[in-house]
Amino acid sequence: FLFELIQNADDNTYADDAQPEATIAYRSDGLLLFGCNEQGFSKANVSAICDINQSTKTLLKQGKKGCIGEKGIGFKSVFKIADKVWIASNNFSFYFDKTTPLGMVDPVWAKFPDFPEQLQMNTMICLKIEKQEDRDVVREQLTKVLEPSSFMFLRRLTKVRVVRLDDF
């Protein structure tokens, strides 16, 4: 799911004068923050992330890779480890709650969790990792799975910052 998020960040749209970058931060209470400095969600992006069928249709219709439809499809992989996922882009934020009916596609308007100023980015995704075993894997593997070779095929991202917000 980390690679899906990174791939989505690489597919995003960035301002001409921006150096595309992403931040991944793990906090000891099981919150995982993923952010990037893209231009921000469009209406089509919100639709794509809320409705996997629609994004599949868009993908097939456009018949090309790197379109916004992929944002919705890859994004759903976060629910492998997260029950609740917040999205923030520009000045708006909402969450998905997997434990409710249609919760993975039904957005609820809500405040984004607080993170330090230096981690704030224009578009952010926050995962609440429920199981302690999943938290342990994420905490330990974060810097191990993200090797330089993982980024060979990225086209836009020039920097990925990994932060652990815990006692270590």
Binding site: G40, K43, N90, L102, V105, P107
Partner: peptide, 20 residues
């Protein structure tokens, strides 16, 4: 880009389309 009001309205529409 999308404003807060536009996003709120769009999210309302999405929820309605899901029958929420």
């Amino acid at each position: 880009s999308l404003s807060v009001e536009e996003c709120q309205a769009h999210i309302r529409d999405i929820r309605h389309s899901h029958g929420a």
